[in-house]
Amino acid sequence: MQKIIESSGISKKFGNTQALKDISFDVSEGEIFGFIGPDGAGKTTLFRIIATLLIPDEGKMEVLGLDSVSGFRELRKNIGYMPGRFSLYQDLSVEENLNFYATVFGTTVKENYDLISDIYSHIEPFRKRLAGKLSGGMKQKLALSCALIHKPGLLILDEPTTGVDAVSRAEFWGILRKLRQHNITIIVSTPYMDEAMKCDRVALIQEGYILSINQPEKIREGFSRKLFSIKAPEKYKLINALRSYPGTVTAYPFGDSVHVTFTDDKFNDSIYDYLGKMGISNVVISESRAGIEDRFLELMEKGTKA
């Protein structure tokens, strides 16, 4: 399949801060590719390089067959970029924003309407309203419509779901999956680990490094130990007790339980006695399946130890 992005050895520094270090990955046509990582991991810097808005210090970035530095003019016509913060003119109406973006890219709303109709139909009843007066969910839909109106070959979405409630997030991912039918390649960044499962492939990114790239299912499977989920009514006591238990490797709170790994990948009944002595009763232990976040934690730990 055709490669839409080929990144090799991209590095970028701001002053003394190494924002990106040796970033290599590729994205194939029609993929939804996710960058998952916390604030400050380098997601936005990377996306700005892909969008031709920043020049990397080192490495080569090829997008849609063009070099992102020398071919920026041609490339800009063919990408749709939805930055994290600003992309709409607050004092223009919904309709005016959309027309503006269409005109800038030398097209008309009519020409590509079928591509955005699914998304735009939700906000079309408010087409005379100023963008600044829209709710968060509607702004997001308008921004996406504007990024798509010139039928780009690559859609770049920088944290489209940050600060958005779970209902709107679910809706938004539904929209992205539908866009795939139009054969649009999408790269998307998010700090929400659970959204990784909705991508075809993801890169886990932390402090400018890529920790792992794979299909989300494969990333989960990469978890190197047996994972146990331990519950007890007094969670705080339980976490501390588990940390002090000699056989424990890691113990992290996960919702109503604690995810624990043991040195020999199993536990014996002595742990119940141990916890009992610490005053913790009603302990329930079960084997658990590692999620993306478990793996992310494991990779982060290895990173800090290395």
Partner: peptide
């Protein structure tokens, strides 16, 4: 905890 890494998020909850 918006935007913080998973380890920090857990330390925060602790």
């Amino acid at each position: 905890t918006g935007g913080v890494d998973p380890i920090t998020r857990r330390q925060f909850w602790e």
